[in-house]
């Protein structure tokens, strides 16, 4: 375990935790620009989180310990996920903890805890949110798994770091199967991160909300952790997308500290692009009815499976 490995690992975790709210701020800013609104500062999410941490926590009378543990569990899961996604370098000691399948499992664990916590107080909105979250999740999770499988088949391993290593270090090759999976992955990303067209992160419109409905009973530090975890989740998903579809620039095994140094601005650039793209998608599409959301996810799932088949047929 060389110092460079440890540095990469530490850098990734710290960067993810620190930069996740910034990324959310960036997406919000892009969206505001596109929609001709005056944009909030990119630092706005940090201010929100800071404010929440300072407040007194208000818990519902019936809340059980599960409700109080859940924010920490969800946050912890997201940090661990950030640790195994090769966003800057592939020399990650912690990738032995979990490969890509375990990563999907980890995200599922976070979702399950969040849904259970939402059901804990026993309000109408909480259970509604939990149900809808699971409804979106049960199709999005296998779709994500299939997306990762295509990349895993291309590089003959399920370790995410090894996949990124393989995809970034070979000569330019076009993978038609990745075109399918990229479409599927985008849909999954939108759905899992409570974005339009599946959910609207900006409103509390009761009949349509999913993510917000689950968090209604949270306040102060618990809410801050949940919000932060949501930002981390978005950050993680974008990083997974980057690792699978545009891995160039990531510091590979063969590169020294310089590679790591280069990879930081490269990642920043990719994230800027991804954030802008996300804002465009959110601006041009309309919110779907809740019942259309499973159809969208089914489409994502099918596209991912198609990608797998195309990979087998074309061998690429």
């Amino acid at each position: 375990m060389s110092p460079l490995n440890l540095t990469t690992q530490a850098l990734e975790i710290i960067a993810a935790i620190a930069a996740a709210p910034l990324f959310v701020g960036w997406v919000n800013q892009c969206r505001a620009w596109l929609q001709n609104r005056s944009a909030p500062s990119v630092l706005q999410p940090y201010r929100g989180i800071r404010k929440l941490f300072h407040k007194d926590a208000v818990l519902a009378e019936r809340a059980s310990p599960l409700f109080r543990i859940a924010p920490y569990m969800v946050f912890g899961a997201m940090v661990l996920a950030a640790a195994i996604i090769p966003s800057m370098g592939t020399r990650l000691p912690l990738t032995v903890a979990a490969d890509s399948i375990a990563l999907v499992g980890l995200l599922a664990t976070a979702r399950m805890f969040m849904s259970l916590a939402a059901m804990d107080v026993g309000t109408a909105f909480g259970t509604l949110g939990a149900r809808r979250e699971m409804m979106v999740g049960f199709l999005a999770e296998p779709a994500l798994l299939m997306v990762i499988f295509v990349a895993a088949l291309i590089s003959q391993t399920t370790s995410l770091a090894a996949i990124a290593e393989h995809l970034s270090s070979q000569t330019l090759a076009l993978y038609p199967s990745l075109a399918f999976t990229a479409v599927a992955f985008t849909l999954v990303l939108l759905a899992e991160n409570a974005r339009i067209p599946v959910d609207n992160p900006a409103t509390h419109l009761e009949l349509t909300m999913i993510h917000e409905a689950m968090l209604l009973e949270y306040s102060a530090r618990h809410l801050a952790l949940m919000e932060w975890a949501a930002a981390l989740k978005l950050f993680n998903y974008v990083c997974i997308g980057v690792a699978l579809f545009v891995p160039w620039g990531v510091a590979t095994e063969s590169q020294g500290p310089l590679g790591l140094l280069v990879s930081v601005p490269v990642l920043a650039l990719k994230l800027c692009g991804a954030g802008a793209g996300l804002a465009v998608i959110e601006t041009v599409s309309a919110k779907l009815r809740v019942f259309r959301a499973p159809e969208l996810m089914a489409t994502a799932f099918l596209f991912a499976v198609l990608g797998l088949l195309v990979h087998l047929l074309l061998g690429a």
């Binding site: 090759a173 076009l174 075109a179 074309l314 061998g315």
Partner: peptide, 20 residues
Amino acid sequence: MVHVPLLLQLVNTCAAGLLL
């Protein structure tokens, strides 16, 4: 994995696009 020339990779990509 068999190495496929770039032109054919492009054809394959077009094919995948057709299916999509």
